[in-house]
Structures are given as C-alpha cells and as structure tokens.
Simulated scan of single mutants.
Amino acid sequence: MSLSGKAALAGVIGWPISHSRSPRLHGFWLKAYGIDGAYLPLAVAPEKLESAVLGLRDAGFRGLNVTIPHKEAVMALCDQVDETARRIGAVNTLVFDGEAIHGSNSDAFGFIENLKEAVPSHDFTTAPGLLLGAGGAAKAVAVALLDAGLPELLICNRSPERAERLAADLGTRAKPLAWARRAEALAGVGLLVNSTSLGMTGHPPLDLVLDRLPAGALVTDLVYTPLETGLLAAARARGCVTVDGLGMLLHQARPGFQAWFGVAPAVTAALRDFVLGDFVPGGDG
C-alpha cells in the first residue's frame, strides 16, 4: 500500500529492535483496515532516547511503542503517565498530542484480555494465584490480576529479594514465596502464571512438578517461543485449561493502534497465523 503525504506514522523503539514482531503485527492491521499509515522499527541507543523521542514527536509521528531497555527511562519524558503505568513503573505506549507526550502501559491490559478471550468463564475472584517471576512483565501481570479481583497472589522468584519488593509494592493481597516452595504452593490455587524466561527456546526448562496443582486450574505462560511450552504441555496433560503467551502480545498492541490510527483493531486467528509466520525465537514486543 502506497503512503500519501498525510500518512499517520508510528513505530517501536528499542535497543536492539530487529527481534520485534510489532511491525509485522501493526502492518497486518494497517493493511486489513486500509489505513494510510506506517509503523516502523526504530533502533534507539539508551543515550539517544530523549533526542529520538522528541525528534520523532517533532517530525509528526503519532506515537510509539517502547520496548527493552527503555520502558522505565522513557517515563521521565512523559508529560502525563496513566495510573496503571505508574503502578507498574514502566511505559510501553506513547501518544503524541502536539508537544505533549502521554505515556501508558498496555501490558496488564494485554495479559488479562488474552485470558478473558481464551477462557471467558474463568472467575478470578474465587481462588489464589501463583506467579513465577518478579521482573517487569511480572509486575504488569500482578497489577492485572489484582485489579481483576484475585483474592491472593503468591509471588515466587529465584531471587527472593525481588519477590519481596514486588509484593511490598502491590499491597496486602500479594505475598512473596520462596522459590523452593513453588511446587507445594500449587495446592489450592486457581491460576498459575509463568513470567520467567524458563522454558523459552534457548533457555533452561522450568523445573516444576504439577502433582499438587488442581486439575481445574488455569495455567498460562508468557513465553511464546515455543508456543506450547513444557509447562503448558504438562498442565494440559493434567487436565488444566492452558493459554499461550502470544495473545498477550497481540492484545497489548490494541490501545496504541487505536490511539495512533483511529481504528479499534481485532485480534483474530488470521492475525495470530500471520505473526507466527515470521517467528524469531527470543523476541520481545
């Protein structure tokens, strides 16, 4: 599709950026909806972050997605940051409004929308959940689950200090748990989430015996390379409902696309297939 001189422009900034599937994802929507616009991958070194963001704003871009390592640093450039992004402590979406820069975080939205689409009948309010990991993605997941009414969230991380800090940031319904107790903690949970890189292609497997996990629990893995991780395969064999992590990537892109291009996009089977068609292990965003 050829672009006019009035084409709407957006993109994703990161360092590096060649792994990102966001251009393929947004490109699919731009073509599907016949929009005069483009979405570009932009490699921005950390020391060039401010000049790049302000330069792209001044050049007429509608906004940007932000991926590693810029999600925290970019907050200082925002004139406004929404409440969810403040709680997570990171911004992944910028919208330019004249000279004003609005920052938000759609990772929590993408996570919960993926689960709701896959398992619309799941009630988050009836049982505790266990979250493996305490990094940036884990905090977005935790915020999403607590906002959905989860009564208690156990946070289990290989570095206990990070789990303790995350739990302290989230309030009384979040509790840290020693990594060695991860298997015994499965008894009675209604939801298990892996937000670590364990099980990802090129990384060590996730060592977790699921014998105590209730057969009716919902299990999801933020890893999507491979699409069915060892955790998901084991949970499915146990009779659990499983949800892969690709949908989080797809759904988190929706708010930015709507803000920049004026269309509320749909996550479809065709989109999943298209994004998977350019699958590069180890990518983010």
Rank of each mutant, 00 (worst) to 15 (best):
A259W: 08
G60Y: 12
W179K: 05
L249R: 01
D107Y: 02
G98S: 02
L54D: 09
G136N: 12
H122E: 07
K48R: 12
L150H: 07
H102V: 11
P205A: 13
A234M: 00
L40Q: 11
G55V: 02
P46L: 08
A127G: 03
P214M: 05
G103N: 01
P205E: 13
V275E: 08
G5Q: 13
T220A: 03
A215K: 10
E113Q: 09
K139R: 15
A167I: 09
L186M: 12
A32P: 02
G216V: 09
H251I: 07
S51N: 06
T67K: 09
F109N: 01
Y33C: 07
L271N: 06
R238E: 02
A7N: 08
L166I: 11
A259K: 12
P205D: 13
S20G: 15
S106C: 00
V53S: 03
R272H: 14
N65M: 03
A8C: 14
R182T: 00
L246K: 03
A178Q: 10
S106Q: 01
I68V: 15
A168K: 13
R272I: 09
G247L: 05
L250R: 07
R212Y: 05
L130R: 05
A148S: 09
T67Y: 03
R165V: 12
G283I: 06
G262W: 01
A52P: 01
L146T: 08
L208Q: 09
Y39W: 07
L77N: 09
T220D: 02
L271P: 01
R86A: 10
G60A: 13
F111I: 04
V219H: 02
A142G: 07
S22H: 08
T242Y: 02
I68Q: 11
M75Q: 11
A215I: 08
H203L: 08
T93V: 14
H203I: 08
R62M: 11
P151S: 08
L132F: 07
P16F: 14
A174T: 06
A43V: 04
S2L: 15
V53K: 03
A174V: 05
A52N: 02
L250F: 05
V280F: 04
G129R: 05
L246D: 05
K175T: 13
M75V: 12
D123L: 05
A108V: 03
R173Y: 03
A178D: 14
L56F: 06
E184Q: 10
A142S: 10
T220V: 06
V189T: 13
S2M: 12
V263E: 10
E164C: 13
G262Y: 01
I17S: 15
E161A: 15
N92D: 07
G149E: 07
E228P: 00
R238G: 01
A269K: 15
S20N: 12
M1F: 10
I35M: 06
H19T: 15
S22W: 03
L64F: 03
L77Q: 07
N65W: 01
V241D: 05
L276C: 12
A100I: 06
G103H: 01
A52S: 14
Q252L: 06
G277V: 01
N194P: 04
L166G: 12
T201Y: 09
A137Q: 10
A168C: 07
S51V: 11
D97W: 01
L206C: 03
T196R: 14
W15N: 15
E152Q: 15
V81A: 04
T201H: 13
A234S: 02
T201G: 02
G262I: 03
D273E: 15
A269P: 13
D147M: 04
N92W: 01
P265E: 10
